[in-house]
């Protein structure tokens, strides 16, 4: 098997890798926003509840969650597809981290921003949506791109719950070929080829959401 054959075999799993990543983001983005904001705004018992949910997803081992949701839940009658489990577990785990970036971004804002909004008579919701979140999300965009890249790489774990992603394909090919070195080398390259464009995209996003900083640097 030529290097090219190995490689095209691995890329046959790209669709699954990409799907898990995209579906994962569908879980991750709303969760991170809602829970990050909730942790920022709530106090007392409500905050304890919000933090508990975040910590469950953030502090659990992804592999174990995948096994539990895919193999153990059917025992109690809940059957989810491998794609759903993969996207949910990986997405919410990433969202646990991302929620902390959202909260940190909000907390890092100058107190004067909120006060200026209050002094102008804006409601708390308007201050959050129009003043605080736009600034916090911009400041945190490098962190979010980081997490997307991490999510892509973490999708290799779904090969453990029967999904034929790039890693699953590589394992298959390695077993057939009895020669793991070129196969895993090709796999390494494949992930790099997926992730590096995301990093480049991230730099572009950073530049385009911060036109002010760029412009002021020129003065």
């Amino acid at each position: 098997m030529s290097m090219f054959d190995i490689w095209s075999g691995i890329l046959g799993g790209f669709r699954i890798t990409a799907s898990v990543t995209l579906y994962g983001l569908i879980f991750a983005v709303p969760f991170a926003l809602v829970f990050g904001v909730a942790q920022y705004l709530t106090t007392g018992f409500a905050r304890f509840l919000v933090t508990s949910v975040i910590e469950f997803w953030r502090s659990s081992a992804v592999v174990i969650l995948l096994f539990v949701f895919y193999y153990a839940l059917p025992v109690v009658g809940v059957t989810l597809s491998a794609m759903t489990v993969g996207a949910m577990v990986l997405g919410l785990n990433t969202a646990g981290y991302a929620s902390q970036a959202v909260r940190a971004g909000l907390q890092a804002l100058d107190r004067g921003q909120k006060e200026a909004g209050q002094a102008l008579g804006l409601s708390r919701a308007a201050i959050l949506l129009l003043i605080e979140l736009p600034q916090a999300l911009r400041a945190m965009s490098p962190t979010f791109i980081n997490l997307v890249i991490q999510l892509v790489k973490a999708t290799s774990l779904v090969s453990l719950i029967t999904l034929t992603d790039m890693t699953f394909r590589a394992k298959e090919i390695a077993q057939v070929e009895y020669d793991p070195v070129p196969v895993y080398l090709a796999l390494l390259l494949s992930y790099f080829m997926v992730c590096y464009p995301i990093a480049l995209f991230g730099r572009w996003v950073e530049r385009s959401v911060n036109p002010v900083r760029e412009a002021s640097r020129g003065i």
């Binding site: 200026a116 002094a119 102008l120 804006l122 600034q135 002010v212």
Partner: peptide, 26 residues
């Protein structure tokens, strides 16, 4: 109306948008 020591303008909005934000939303 309140004017702060550190201006507290909204850095992500243009000067015009800083001025119109509350007019439009409040």
């Amino acid at each position: 109306g309140m004017v702060f020591q550190n201006f507290n303008l909204f850095p992500h909005l243009s000067v015009l948008a800083n001025c119109t934000l509350a007019l439009r939303r409040v």
